[in-house]
């Protein structure tokens, strides 16, 4: 009973509503609204705070113009005076996240495909378990050894170094998502190609890969979000040349206390890109998360 459908037709739920009276429907909508508000509320509060000066930020006021005079000070500082640094850190974040995403999905697709299609002496299940266990390890445990290791490779405070770190952390997720996708994927099509004399690589590239686009997208967006949000390793390994944007978010807590307006501004900037991406590839995320967690 736990097998999920191969595609999740979320647009057409199968369960018809109970239509005896209009009341449940109103209640349902009300509940949906409440849930939506619960989700949006922190974002809304951050938006309001980002238009407040430090003095106003510490007053419980909600409505601009009526309750407080909105100020562009924070946005101005972030995009104007500090614009260069913002752009630099965002650039790093994008390079690191995109790099890690590409690498992790590339390697994850190959390995995931392998685990779904071939048999290995050591036991496929054991390999999958081992890959999965990587997600359970607390990253703090390995920070210093990791640092020493990266130092040997002369990759401290470089974008390639941070790509490598983030690839390592996101790869297990990519492998699991892709493995599940290929496991559900009918083998018959590939076997037909095999009969035509194609090599395994040709089959993979020409038959399997094109059909895997949805899962690939899902894996990619999840890896991207993980890499984009990483702070702990970056704060120690990339304070200078490869500084990502999460670093700037953390730095709103200064020797003179937390600057709330900046904080809200930077938080919104940090959240915007992955959230916008997530809205664009909505359907694939649902697939990806489902595959990755329920099945593997």
């Amino acid at each position: 009973m736990t097998t999920l459908p191969k595609s999740l037709p979320l647009e057409t739920p199968r369960l018809a509503p109970i239509r005896r009276s209009p009341l449940p429907r109103i209640l349902l909508w009300l509940a949906v609204m409440v849930v939506t508000l619960w989700v949006l509320y922190p974002f809304a509060w951050a938006v309001i705070t980002s238009f407040k000066t430090q003095r106003q930020a510490l007053e419980p006021t909600f409505v601009p113009f009526l309750q407080f005079q909105p100020s562009l000070e924070n946005w101005g500082a972030e995009l104007g005076l500090g614009g260069r640094e913002t752009a630099f850190a965002l650039g790093n974040s994008i390079m690191i996240s995109v790099g890690a995403t590409l690498l992790a999905t590339l390697l994850g697709t190959l390995t995931g495909y392998a685990l779904a299609r071939f048999r290995y002496g050591i036991g496929n299940r054991n390999i999958v378990s081992w890959v999965m266990s990587q997600r359970f390890l607390p990253p703090v445990a390995t920070l210093i050894p990791f640092f020493l290791f990266m130092q040997r490779l002369k990759l401290i405070d470089t974008v390639p170094g941070m790509i490598l770190v983030n690839t390592t952390f996101t790869l297990p997720f990519a492998i699991l998502i892709m493995r599940d996708f290929f496991a559900d994927f009918p083998e018959e099509i590939e076997e037909a190609a095999l009969v035509d004399g194609a090599s395994p690589l040709q089959i993979f590239l020409r038959v399997a890969l094109p059909l895997a686009t949805p899962a690939l997208t899902a894996a990619a967006i999840i890896c991207f979000a993980f890499a984009w949000n990483e702070y702990l390793f970056a704060s120690v390994m990339a304070p200078k040349d490869a500084k990502p944007y999460t670093f700037l978010v953390a730095s709103t807590s200064t020797v003179r206390g937390v600057h709330f307006g900046y904080l809200a501004t930077r938080m919104l900037i940090a959240i915007t890109l992955p959230v916008v991406l997530s809205l664009f590839v909505q359907r694939y995320i649902v697939r990806g998360l489902t595959l990755g967690a329920v099945k593997g």
Binding site: T36, V39, W228, N229, R266, M267, S278, I285, V286
Partner: peptide, 15 residues
């Protein structure tokens, strides 16, 4: 609404 509801997943924990 489903799209909106997945937004929190992508907020950096440090933020």
């Amino acid at each position: 609404f489903r799209g909106i509801l997945t937004m929190p997943l992508f907020a950096a924990p440090i933020a």
